[in-house]
Amino acid sequence: MWTRFFTRKVHWADIIVVAVLVLFFGYIWIQIDGKLNYKWQWERIPTYLFRYDEDSERWVANVLIQGLLTTIRISIFASLLAIVLGVILGMARTAKNLTVRMLARTYLELLRNIPPLVIIFIFFFFLSEQVVTALNIESWAYAVSRSENVAIWEFFFGDMRRFPSLISGVIVLALFESAFVGEIVRSGIESVSKGQREAAQSLAMRWRDEMQIVVLPQAFRKILPPLANQFIVLIKDSAIISLVSVQDLTLRAVELANSTRMLFETWITVAVLYFVLCFGLSMLFRWLENRAKLVPD
């Protein structure tokens, strides 16, 4: 791919495009560096990725990497939950029963036609005020944070004292994404031919077995690429829950930028972290997809 890129002839139009870009970024640079009298402090950034812990004499993650880990955790949990909800939604959308279809459609349209931010504010405060309190999650999480096997819990959920807000964030994000996952699942279910379902029915299968054994496995094979893509979209969307004080990468960056005044360094670093994560995943998925194609079925 790269060799092809370089061996291709460079056109004079390309040179103009590059020149314009250089001029544009040069201008912005001058504005920031000269006019704003901005003092770049790139050398301080690495210490906010990792810092040396005097007590344990080890390098440990600092705010930005902690934030990145939280973002990854939230994205994984929210995706798993979104897939469960999405499968239910997708099946409901293709159900025979009209009431079930209507309910699913209502849920979908509500989530699709209200800005995510508004959904998140409504659900987050409902969840964190009502559900989390009702289930006594808060005191449970504090108990865990003082227990002995806290290390295992922290591996999965990060700082346990932050668990209630993390779990609310995960649920809200999953609700929001489930609408999109549901539509992907529906398209997968509809791609399974009618004959397949008739064969299952004439073997006297229950609806559950028909779905579990015949329809969903075939549907999932078809929708794996769009689902993987939706996972990456979810990682990017997850930045939104920083607004309800879940300490993900974005919120950590806001705090860091405010306290150190390294506005550009912080946000450029954060952009790079998101990019590496999402682009890396999309390359990984593409590789897996190509490899799957090589295996004959």
């Binding site: 004959g195 008739e198 064969a199 496995p217």
Partner: peptide
Amino acid sequence: IRNVRMEIGMVFQQFNLFPH
């Protein structure tokens, strides 16, 4: 209806085997 279907086998023009 499943009890009835258990006693009836059906063969289709397009086979409809489960490909996976």
